[in-house]
Nucleic acid binder design. Structure first.
Length: 809
RNA sequence: GCGGAUAUGGCGGAACUGGCAGACGCGCAGGACUUAGAAUCCUGUGGGAAACCGUGCAGGUUCGAUUCCUGUUAUCCGCACCA
């Protein structure tokens, strides 16, 4: 078959017939399939795109044939650094390169033959989209979910911008791998921490990969404990510490503040001042990556101040150390060397006292002892278990207003401003008189100006664009300045799935009624790398918009699948430097897009991925040839007189219905490799029947028709062509999916294995509907069994219907 | 250190709820067709001469374990001084 020709032909026909456009009439039967949208790069589609979009499209087509009204949109996550970096390198404006790249990608995506509904296309860099991203920002701002504050933030010196916590990977910039440094800057944050608890608990009910859920749980990092207040000796100030081990409070021998803690400046004594200042300066210079290193020696400095342990009024010294993180908990901890490994090391180094307050159950509990046990040296709490003591101590402290129960989360607020050009401008105006003034909604979008010097120098490129910056304050009318920062591209992608169902709405971001019907997304498919970024942000935005009354559901993605990664033939990740990159284009040219897609579906376990293999793709090509031959040769046969359903026909009918049942189940479960395996078996069964002298041609034609239907989702153009050749009037995708006839799966005779003492010793044939009693009788009467038993007494017989018989002797 | 996963023939990978391990495909071998090759079709293909042995390793539960339990090793991924 001339694949190239039929691909073009059917793609044009499908487009003309609007086969892939969502039909609102059937909204009650909607099924929203979503692949993560892609970044418009200059290169053609890579294997990763294909592996995400191809098999998932087959899933969508399968669902369509099963009667669902499919909504499968596609778009572009078009803002972001790569276009800007490319511009800095080459001088080509990001807008120009992005628009051009989108065009090429649209074309290659069309050539894939996926049923994307292009009428709902989204490009996040277009004003008609980012207008609503800005609107989203304003809603969050007006409801105290967006705020601006000065804080130590992650700064990438290479990208010349701040980064969210999620974008710092092991101290390095997620994008360019430069070492991230800390800087004090005033930045915009989204209050995702308000939703920490809900983001955590709702995970339980999601049909998501366990791993992804675990990563989010881990990232949110809930920690249940308490807060304890230490009054400072000689100051009218207190230090609050967060601890999960309130039971060890009698073992406190010092308290440590993070070097950045504002109290440090207030409490440091004159004598210690020089040393403390030196330490603070050193730590601020220390790169994040080094500070995080576990093997790094613990260092610290005494402030000269003391505070009072609230349980025993003991005076303990206050130290500072960079092993305490300012951004977590209260930025200060109580040091209990006897029961914490870090504190133990620290206390030994600086000669601080070590007092045991927990005794383990067994004998061997050398210090530091971090396990559970019973309290000692803790006055009235002695003898309590750790858990009892935690409750007792904290509630006693609460009564004296010196502490209480407290839950902490590791999750930080989401830093959303960026000092870069190619993003959505933050719709805020700074006025000398009125302060922070949101841009009135009717003035949206705040358009990103074209003529901007975007070479990065640590300041926002927009800040240098006077015609952009200068604006009248919407409140007082006096001259004011715009916010020069742009939004993190993850803001753009945190709500795009809400825009798709109403992509062309010029009046609002989306119609509430519409998206309440269309969402949540029924099946979301994309890479696992977004676990703690896009997937978490999207959940947060959905919940926030729900609370603001814009929608009525709590989770955006009901069911999530991560495709695996296709590696180079050498088993390594594909990369230009390794020279192991597979170009889909070359294979699509040689074999056609259906063959390429099918190989991706057949050669790998979808969620696992694996190394590319050339041999596999040829075998798919061969397989489709086999299908074409049997389908067309059967179609050209004339119906004969023989119309019986005898043994051979029953066998073929069994194969047919077994295939229908298995393929149906496997496609639904994204188990594409086994689905195709069953179709291959079915084709072999057809060849076997075809070789017979006497055939029921009419029946065989029915069987062949089902073959084309089963194959259609996986080889759309190919199947559509065959379908039309065997007389299909409308599109094969509007045809009804075959239904399994269970009665055809009941065989007249079934072969069972007979085990004697759990080893297979014989095979028996039993009627398909035989009950256990009959099966046992046949087994025990079998010659092979009698021989194998060799006169031994039968003690017990276990019959597993349809499987085997085990005789214990 | 914490969390999650994975481990099955020469290779990619199957195995539903504990029930004949290795589906399907690649590769390989043999055969058919052909003047010959390619293509195609058919047959065989875990190891072992056999008894038997085989799902990373060591135990356990069970009539029966790739599957459940305990321990352990290796690899991959994520987080990591989170108090």
């Amino acid at each position: 078959m001339d694949m190239k020709a039929i691909e073009k032909k059917w793609q044009a026909k499908w487009e003309k017939d609007k086969l892939h456009v969502f039909d609102k009439k059937n909204i009650d039967n909607k099924y929203y399939v979503l692949e993560m949208f892609s970044y418009p790069s200059a290169a053609k589609l890579h294997v990763g795109h294909w592996y995400n979009y191809g098999p998932t499209d087959s899933f969508a087509r399968y669902k369509k044939m099963k009667g669902c009204e499919i909504f499968q949109p596609m778009g572009f996550d078009a803002f972001g650094l790569p276009a800007e970096n490319y511009a800095i390198k080459t001088g080509v404006h990001p807008e120009d390169s992005t628009v051009k790249n989108i065009e090429t990608m649209e074309n290659t995506l069309r050539e894939m033959g996926a049923m994307f509904d292009w009428s709902a296309e989204i490009k996040t860099c277009m004003p008609d989209y980012y207008k609503w991203t800005q609107w989203l920002f304003l809603q969050l701002y007006k409801n105290n979910l967006a705020y601006r504050k000065e804080a130590p933030v992650n700064w990438c010196p290479d990208c010349q911008t701040v980064l969210a916590n999620e974008q710092v990977v092991q101290g390095l910039c997620e994008r360019c791998k430069s070492t991230v440094v800390q800087k004090d800057l005033t930045q915009w944050f989204f209050k995702i921490t308000d939703y920490a608890e809900e983001l955590l608990t709702c995970l339980d009910d999601l049909d998501w990969p366990e791993k992804t859920k675990a990563m989010q749980r881990n990232w949110i990092g809930k920690s249940v404990g308490g807060e304890i207040t230490f009054k400072l000796d000689g100051f009218d100030e207190t230090i609050k510490v967060f601890t999960t081990r309130a039971d060890t409070v009698y073992g406190v021998s010092y308290v440590v503040l993070a070097p950045e803690h504002p109290l440090v400046k207030k409490i440091t004594t004159k004598k210690q001042l020089q040393e403390v200042e030196k330490y603070i300066e050193e730590t601020s210079k220390t790169k994040e990556i080094e500070r995080l290193s576990l093997d790094r020696e613990k260092t610290g400095v005494f402030t000269g101040a003391y505070c009072i342990n609230p349980v025993n009024n003991q005076k303990v010294p206050v130290w500072i150390s960079d092993y305490v993180l300012y951004s977590y908990g209260t930025g200060s901890v109580m040091g209990v060397p006897s029961h914490d490994e870090r504190d133990f090391v620290f206390a030994n180094k600086y000669n601080l006292p070590i007092t045991r307050v927990i005794k383990g159950a067994c004998g061997n509990d050398d210090l530091p002892f971090t396990g559970d046990g019973t309290l000692v040296n803790s006055v009235s709490y002695d003898g309590l278990t750790c858990e009892e003591a935690r409750k007792a101590i904290l509630s006693d402290l609460a009564k004296r207003d010196l502490g209480g129960f407290k839950v902490n989360y590791r999750l930080r607020d989401w830093l959303v401003s960026r000092q870069r050009y190619w993003g959505a401008p933050i719709p805020i105006i700074h006025c000398e008189h009125c302060g922070i003034v949101p841009v009135p909604e009717e003035d949206l979008p705040v358009k990103l100006p074209y003529n901007v010097e975007f070479k990065p120098d640590g300041k926002s490129p927009l800040a240098k664009c006077e015609e952009f910056m200068n604006v009248k304050c919407p409140k007082c009318g006096k001259p004011a300045r715009r916010d020069p920062d742009t939004l993190d591209t993850f803001v753009c992608s945190s709500w795009y799935f809400l825009r798709y169902p109403d992509a062309n709405n010029a009046k609002e971001a989306f119609d509430k009624e519409k998206i309440n019907k269309m969402l949540p997304v029924d099946k979301y498919v994309g890479g696992a790398e977004h676990a703690c970024m896009h997937l978490l942000y999207s959940r947060f935005i959905t919940k926030a918009l729900r609370d603001l009354g814009y929608l009525d559901f709590s989770e955006p993605f009901k069911s999530l699948v991560h495709q695996g990664v296709i590696l180079g033939p050498d088993g390594n990740r594909m990369s230009k430097s390794r020279g192991n990159v597979i170009s889909p284009d070359d294979y699509v040219k040689e074999f056609g897009s259906d063959v390429f897609r099918m190989y991706l579906m057949f050669g790998f376990s979808y969620t696992e991925g694996g190394p590319w293999n050339d041999g596999g793709i040829k075998s798919i090509n061969k397989f489709l040839d086999r299908v074409e031959k049997i389908v067309l040769s059967t179609h050209s046969l004339k119906n004969g007189k023989y119309q019986e359903m005898q043994r051979n026909e029953k066998e073929l009918n069994y194969a047919r219905n077994y295939a229908i049942k298995s393929v149906d189940r496997d496609m639904d479960a994204f188990s594409f490799n086994t689905a195709l395996a069953r179709i291959m078996e079915y084709v072999s069964a057809l060849y076997k029947y075809d070789a017979l002298e006497v055939k029921n041609v009419q029946f065989m034609k029915e069987c062949v028709k089902d073959l084309v239907l089963l194959l259609a989702p996986c080889a759309p153009h190919f199947a559509e062509e065959l379908w039309s050749k065997i007389g299909g009037k409308k599109s094969v995708f509007n045809a009804e999916y075959p239904v399994c006839d269970e009665s055809a799966l009941v065989k007249d005779e079934v072969e069972l294995a007979v085990q004697i003492n759990s080893k297979v010793r014989a095979k028996i044939l039993v009627p398909g509907d035989a009950d256990n009693e009959l099966i046992e009788k046949i087994a025990l009467e079998s010659d092979q069994v009698i021989k194998a038993l060799d006169g031994k007494q039968v003690k017990k017989v276990i019959v597993i219907k349809g499987r085997l018989v085990n005789i214990i002797a």
